[in-house]
């Protein structure tokens, strides 16, 4: 199976429920069609596409609002989401994300892929992978705020609705990743 060829995974299986053999992933074109239909339905029903980074920032503001409410009320960027009595989590994108988590979990369990493990390249340690994943999360989210959306909100949704700016963002993401890929080759190969 290709999974084991590409990666070496450290597995500690949890319970019987989560220890059934992992099924291979779907054909990418088939997965893409499913994703495309979901994306279309999102536009058709709600007028909006899909997103993910919006929730991450709302959740961060939610925590910040609990810890330092007066600070949130002074910073204009945060004020928009959580000024005064406004609850930053009372927004449609948060429900999309809740659904995303549930959908991912359900598919993972059905296909035997919901396992406590670290996905990484064959030649780096778990600890290094964790540090890099955390740091890259910081970097990615910062970039996503800067570009007003991530791969979901800009590249995927804006790509399908033919926003010129989103196509620029999409090419910038691919450009950035390809540009740095050579220097990161030890992480993944």
């Amino acid at each position: 199976m290709t999974t084991s060829e590409i990666t070496k995974k450290s597995r500690f299986s949890l319970k019987a429920l989560f220890s059934k053999p992992a099924q291979p992933y779907a054909d990418p074109y088939l997965g893409g069609i499913l994703l495309g239909v979901v994306l279309f339905l999102a536009f058709f029903i709600t007028g909006n596409g899909l997103g993910a980074s919006g929730t991450i920032s709302r959740f961060a503001v939610f925590i910040e609002d609990l810890v330092a409410s007066s600070h949130v009320n002074r910073v204009p960027y945060l004020l928009k989401m959580a000024g005064g009595d406004k609850n930053p989590l009372d927004d449609w994108i948060v429900f999309i994300t809740l659904g995303t988590l549930i959908g991912g979990f359900v598919s993972g369990v059905i296909h035997g892929r919901a396992k406590l493990e670290t996905t990484k390249g064959p030649n780096i340690s778990n600890q290094k992978r964790w540090v890099l994943a955390f740091s890259a999360g910081i970097l990615f989210a910062f970039g996503a705020r800067m570009a007003r959306g991530c791969t979901s909100g800009q590249a995927l949704s804006g790509g399908a609705s033919l926003s010129s700016g989103s196509w620029v963002v999409m090419f910038a993401i691919f450009g950035g990743a390809y540009g740095l890929a050579y220097f990161m080759r030890k992480l993944w190969n």
């Binding site: 993972g108 396992k115 890099l132 970097l139 990615f140 970039g143 800067m146 450009g175």
Partner: peptide, 29 residues
């Protein structure tokens, strides 16, 4: 958009995820 996109690209290749995919990865432990 361009600068943010390039930063995201760096995050993608270092971290191997983007926000949407990391949520699904987190949901599958």
């Amino acid at each position: 958009g361009i600068i943010g996109g390039v930063i995201m690209g760096f995050g993608f290749i270092i971290g191997g995820f983007c926000p949407g995919t990391s949520l699904v990865a987190a949901a599958t432990f």
